[in-house]
Every structure is written in structure tokens, then in C-alpha cells.
């Protein structure tokens, strides 16, 4: 009965959504409203004014910098939320701790061999976001996945030693902080908060710095979620 009701609701909602969406122009069609108004303006004068050859980066970090700042804050807030709620402190009774499985020498060697390449690729994605698809969030995610992989294989303690513990919260906060600094630099040098100052090289430098900060922030947030689930984690 409840299932039938849920199904009915889902079908009605899906019908409403489809009816609404079906009137929109097909995605990618050049005469859709999306491509005529603001986006067209970005494409016309975007790359020079936006400061990055990759238009997506220009929109993300320049035209709509406040949104990206907000997203970075959302990630940071989620990390703080996970740490504050402290999942590791909540479980009662003895944890089902699997017996310590010694690291296989094969896996250990292979991971050590591959890790630098993966890290390099992550860095490449972060920096390449300036000209090609990619960017801070994407590269940061790859970096975070690498750190989690390393922690899975080598054990969380080794990873925690790799991360600078006393300064961990500074590193975690890097993305919102660099954004705030950029905003203030914009006010000081270009007259508006979040504006990018004029000489092209400075502009590019700031964008690259922002991308790096976003990448590190995203990676550390992901590792933070993972480590908070780890058994012996007490912050």
C-alpha cells in the first residue's frame, strides 16, 4: 500500500517535471535562451576580460567568483560539520576492528610507484584548468582520492603523519582564506571586491593561486571525511 502510494507520487512528480522540461528548447540548440543572453556576452568578450583562456574558469573564478567562494565555504562547512559531529565518537561498544593485515609488499611497491604519477596528474589537472577543461575542484578530487588510496593501503597513521597536523586547520581553510585575500586584493588594486587586478600576468597568477588553493582544500576535505570515519581518529 505504502509502496503503491510512493510509486504514484513518483509517477505524478515525474510527469509534472517532464511536462515542464519538455517545453524548453533542446539542450545545445543555438536559439535557446541560454545561448543568447549572458552566455553570448561571455563568449564574445570573455577570455580577454575574464583573465583565463578557459572560459569555464573565467566564469567560475571571475564573473561568478562569489558563487565559487560560496561553494568553497560549503565544502569547508561540511568538513567542519563532520569533525564537529565527530562520527568516530558516536559508536558505542567495541568496534569491529579487522585483524591487522600486513601490507602486501607487491601492493606497497606498486602504490609507491604509481603515487607520484597520480599526484602529478592531479597537479596537472589543477593547473591545466587554466586553459583546458579541468581545474581546482577536479584536480583536488583526484588528489583526495590518491590520499585515501594511500591511506587504505599504507594505513591511516602514515597518512596522518604526511599531513601537517599542527597546521592542519590552516591548510584546510586555505581555499576560503585565499578567496578572501583575492577579494580584498581586488578592492585594493582594481576598486571592487573580487575584481581581478589589471596586468595580465598578475591576473593569471591570482587565478592559478586560487585554483591551487581550491584543489588543496577539496582534497583535504575529502581526506577529512574519510579520516573521521577511521576507527582510531580523535581530533
Amino acid at each position: 500500500m505504502r509502496n503503491a502510494l510512493a510509486l504514484l507520487i513518483v509517477i505524478v512528480l515525474a510527469g509534472l517535471m517532464m511536462a515542464g522540461v519538455s517545453q524548453l528548447p533542446p539542450p545545445g540548440s543555438p536559439d535557446g535562451a541560454v545561448h543568447r543572453h549572458v552566455a553570448a556576452h561571455y563568449i564574445d568578450g570573455g577570455t580577454e576580460a575574464g583573465g583565463a583562456p578557459n572560459l569555464v574558469t573565467a566564469v567560475l573564478l571571475n564573473y561568478r567568483a562569489l558563487d565559487t567562494y560560496g561553494e568553497v565555504v560549503v565544502i569547508f562547512a561540511a568538513l567542519v560539520a563532520v569533525l564537529a559531529v565527530g562520527l568516530s565518537g558516536h559508536s558505542r561498544g567495541p568496534r569491529r576492528q579487522p585483524d591487522e593485515l600486513p601490507v602486501s609488499p607487491v601492493v606497497d611497491r606498486i602504490i609507491r610507484l604509481l603515487a607520484p604519477f597520480i599526484a602529478l596528474f592531479a597537479l596537472f589537472m589543477i593547473l591545466e584548468g587554466h586553459v583546458l577543461p579541468g581545474g581546482g575542484f577536479q584536480g583536488g578530487v583526484v588528489l583526495g582520492a590518491l590520499l585515501i588510496l594511500l591511506s587504505l593501503v599504507l594505513g591511516p597513521r602514515r597518512i596522518r603523519r604526511m599531513l601537517p597536523t599542527p597546521a592542519l586547520f590552516w591548510t584546510r581553510a586555505i581555499a576560503p582564506l585565499v578567496f578572501a585575500l583575492t577579494a580584498i586584493a581586488g578592492l585594493a588594486l582594481a576598486g571592487w571586491l573580487f575584481a581581478l587586478p589589471e596586468p595580465a600576468w598578475l591576473r593569471e597568477l591570482i587565478l592559478v593561486g586560487l585554483e591551487l588553493a581550491i584543489g588543496i582544500g577539496a582534497a583535504l576535505a575529502l581526506v577529512g571525511f574519510y579520516l573521521s570515519l577511521e576507527a582510531d581518529h580523535h581530533d
Binding site: P98, L101, S104, V106, V107, I110, L113, L114
Partner: peptide, 21 residues
């Protein structure tokens, strides 16, 4: 080259974990 390295490693790790479990 990546596949040649990673795929056997993954198989090895899985088999080891399975045996351990």
C-alpha cells in the same frame, strides 16, 4: 603500461584480502 601494472596488483590485493577474510 598502467593497466599492465595496476590490474594484476588489484587482483593480488583482492585475493589476499579474500584469503584473510
Amino acid at each position: 603500461a598502467l593497466i599492465a601494472i595496476s590490474s594484476p596488483t588489484a587482483g593480488h590485493a583482492l585475493a589476499r584480502a579474500g584469503w584473510h577474510a
